[in-house]
Design a protein around this nucleic acid. Structure first.
Length: 468
DNA sequence: CGGGAAGGTAG
DNA sequence: GCTACCTTCCC
């Protein structure tokens, strides 16, 4: 499997040779893991070049895969992430901004209890070198043009030595250096050339690239520069244990973090509702509403009204607006969607959030209260005559159901969920005839067909975006 | 540390 | 000309 054809460069040769040795000494599974990561992408020269040069975790450091023969094969040393980096809310910094802007926090970080990314080497106690690098979210991962910066970092890689009982390394000061777009191709090309040199200079012989090869690499770099995502990186943690000479050449299989999204990039930044010009409205919907927010992209943003319980979403509908209603990325003017039941007798508290279409990210919600729509006297009269399941016991302080004043003194009414008797039959399907929702609800709305629609259907005031 | 804002640039 | 994005500047 790991033949000459599939591993024409040095890195792979190295890994594969070790792997072959490992096969005899260690479990088959480990062997396969190595193979997959190191040999799979070796198809075309272009891919291969990129795969080699951009994956090679330490160009020029000449390392070999750990030989486990002297260790119990059931308990191999391994490096594991015990605290993942925060996925969002961290800003990649340009070099011109200086390095002192704080490191990336850990996933479980809190306001006054900050954590940081951390790894632990299991099944081994002793000196170890830990290297941290930025890689892409591609599979297999490639070295990213962005790099890590911080206290223990030099040349875009972070290096620490540990030798403790817990074998834990924590990284309190990792920053991500954002490379300017204009330099991406250049950096990539440089790296490819380095990779080429490394694999083509056996011994001390230095070969030069031919014009053709240079051109090829140039093209490959240009190509790659076009598609590389500058808004997301992963951290790759690699552990090196000392060999017989005491130098750290025995590489353990790297541990990869989850994705880290640049909080400054418009398509991955945090969503936030700053302010809304109204916190309540008619269950009939169709009312104009202004919402101020942190930066959004006008073609990729939704205002989602929804309800959910501990089991998941119950109802959702979308504010109605088009790209032109998004004002300079910071404000949205839209029409409220109607509530699924516009004959509610009591105010209903729902939630509103921003939602990014492209990745499904959402903001923290704000509460929004639907109040019973104003009705003509006749219908109110009719309704009074037949109180029923759609009039749950009031638990609020509302005195009146047909006035408007009560919603100022609103007390949420959750009793309506008890029997689940008010779900509209058509709700889930009508959510978005125009395709504003791409992802289905996590949990399908229940009682759809067996429930009666208990409100009068009026004209469908858009329950979703009218565009797209 | 963490954030906003300014100024430049590309579509 | 305008908008949104990118990069740099700065509190």
């Amino acid at each position: 499997m790991c033949t000459k054809e599939t591993r024409p460069n040095k890195l792979r040769k190295q890994d594969c040779v070790s792997a072959r040795r490992l096969k005899r000494l260690t479990k088959e599974t480990r062997h396969n893991k190595l193979r997959k990561q190191d040999c799979v992408s070796a198809r075309r020269l272009t891919m291969d070049l990129i795969g080699c040069s951009l994956l090679d975790p330490d160009l020029g450091l000449g390392t070999q895969i750990m030989n486990f023969s002297e260790l119990p094969s059931t308990q191999e040393p391994n490096i594991t992430i015990i605290e993942q980096p925060r996925q969002r809310g961290f800003r990649f910094r340009y070099s011109c901004e200086g390095p002192t802007h704080g490191g990336i926090q850990g996933e479980s970080s809190e306001r006054n209890r900050k954590t940081h990314p951390a790894i632990k080497v299991f099944n081994y106690i002793g000196p170890a070198k830990i290297v941290v690098q930025c890689v892409t979210t591609d599979e297999p991962p490639l070295l990213h043009v962005h790099s890590v910066v911080g206290k223990q970092c030099t040349n875009g890689i972070c290096e620490v030595y540990i030798n403790s009982n817990d074998m834990i390394a924590s990284f309190p000061n990792l920053g991500i250096l954002h490379v300017p777009r204009r330099s991406v191709a250049e950096i990539l090309e440089e790296r490819l050339v380095q990779g080429w040199r490394k694999e083509n200079s056996e011994g001390s012989q230095l070969k030069e690239l031919t014009e053709e090869e240079r051109e090829h690499i140039h093209k490959a770099a240009q190509q790659r520069a076009k598609v590389i995502d500058l808004a997301v990186v992963r951290l790759m943690f690699t552990a090196y244990l000392p060999d017989n000479n005491g130098t750290f050449t025995l590489r353990l299989e790297p541990a990869l973090s989850g994705p880290i999204y640049d909080s400054k990039a418009p398509n991955t930044c945090d969503l936030k509702i700053v302010r809304m010009d109204r916190m309540s409205g008619s269950a009939a919907g169709g009312e104009e509403m202004y919402l101020l927010c942190d930066k959004v992209q006008k073609d990729d943003i939704q205002v989602r009204f929804y309800e959910q319980d501990e089991n998941g979403p119950l109802w959702e509908a979308f504010g109605k607006f088009g790209p032109a209603d998004v004002h300079r990325q910071y404000a949205i003017v839209f029409k409220t969607p109607k509530y699924y039941n516009n004959s509610i007798k009591n105010p209903v508290s729902v939630l509103v959030q921003l939602r990014r279409r492209s990745d499904g990210e959402t903001s923290d919600p704000k509460t929004f209260i639907y109040y019973p729509p104003k009705r003509d006297k006749e219908r109110v009269h009719q309704k009074r005559k037949k109180p029923s399941q759609d009039e749950p016991a009031q638990n609020g302080r509302q005195e009146s159901v047909n006035g408007r004043g009560f919603y100022w003194t609103y007390v949420p009414d959750f009793s309506r969920y008890e029997g689940r008797s008010q779900f509209p039959a058509h709700n889930a399907d009508s959510l978005c005839e125009t395709g504003a929702i791409s992802a289905p609800l996590k949990r399908p709305l229940e009682h759809r067909s067996e429930e009666k629609t208990i409100f009068n259907e009026e004209e469908d005031t858009g329950s979703c975006c009218a565009w797209h």
